[in-house]
Design a protein around this nucleic acid. Sequence first.
DNA 1: TGTTGGTGTTACCGATCGGTAACATCGGCT
DNA 2: AGCCGATGTTACCGATCGGTAACACCAACA
Lengths: 204, 204
Amino acid sequence: MSESGKPARTVVDAASASARILDAAESLFYREGTRAVGVDAVVKQAGVNKMSLYRQFSSKDELLRQYLKRREAMFWGYFDGSVGQHPDDAAAALRQYFSDVTARATRDGYRGCPFVNVAAEYPEPDHFARRFVAEHKRQLLARLTALAAAAGARDPAALARALALLIEGLYTASQTYGTDSPVMAAVPQVADLLIAQALGRDPA
Amino acid sequence: MSESGKPARTVVDAASASARILDAAESLFYREGTRAVGVDAVVKQAGVNKMSLYRQFSSKDELLRQYLKRREAMFWGYFDGSVGQHPDDAAAALRQYFSDVTARATRDGYRGCPFVNVAAEYPEPDHFARRFVAEHKRQLLARLTALAAAAGARDPAALARALALLIEGLYTASQTYGTDSPVMAAVPQVADLLIAQALGRDPA
DNA sequence: TGTTGGTGTTACCGATCGGTAACATCGGCT
DNA sequence: AGCCGATGTTACCGATCGGTAACACCAACA
């Protein structure tokens, strides 16, 4: 549109630039991996300049930190959205979560748990991203244990550990066996079985 | 030791150079990731020159292919070593495998399933490494199904899917919850439970 | 009107990536 | 002895990595 040779400069205020950068980083980091995606790809997708990124985020590591925090919030939003449907029935809440997470993880293009992927990308166990993941999983196990206790499991910690393994298995199987594998479809049944067994009942 | 300024040239024949390169690549790729490790790191660890690598392997992708093939052979060596201990009792063979793989995966420094890690590193589902992983897991599921059938499971495919999920969960939990987590220690119990339930018996 | 602070743009930095050309040097062979 | 093929070494290629300096520009405010 501009007749001059000047490069169509578009001005974006800092707040919205920051949001656009985070949106771009989140989708790119999740879909392609945090190490594989460079800052140039992020700024291109966000439609901002590289200097705009480095004026909002001190480094790519800081961007990774924000990405992890957003994904953590998203995870607990999903989690609470599932278990909140059954405030008076912890067993049903657990089953609901497994049903919902399986539905999400079997969607085409699903790229697995972002925390699992990050753990795979950074070998050093004391890297801040690995610490973040470990802390997140610790909290998840605690929530599962509390729900298992509320459901009246004979050994809440044991049920929580079994369900934690199932969740990690679901995440990984989506990438190794494929989102459309029968292995994925089996998740809710296995969850039902583990829960029923821990409650001392025969599964249906 | 040499008094001249020349750089201590050491000659290695092609066959042993190839083996040393593969050894170095295998440990580095497994411990630090196939994308994170460059060919320079591989040749340095192998103690050979970069040109020696490229005269044996056409590209880094070819090196990755050989790495995957070696890891596949290693996996089936472990697997057959476990199930082979109970040629007349498929249920015991399955339990043995879960006991052994848990022992390996809880060792300090364990870095998870190499195929899972590769799947996490390459986002494109049709990348040759992803195809390799998918084929490997397909074969694993087939072996599990055959063992479940031999054990007399009411629904061999269902038991195999549940055990496949447990295996993926074990691999991933070792990296997210940590090799020393109680979650890892719970794997054999969960396997016993799934097997016993599928056989129609009460678990001990 | 002039100044000032934040924004966009360009160009660049050193490091590392996968990969290669050219040449020195060696061992085995005739 | 003389040759030749395979190996070791150096130096380099273009591309990309994360990150930055310098400057053009614009808006709000005095």
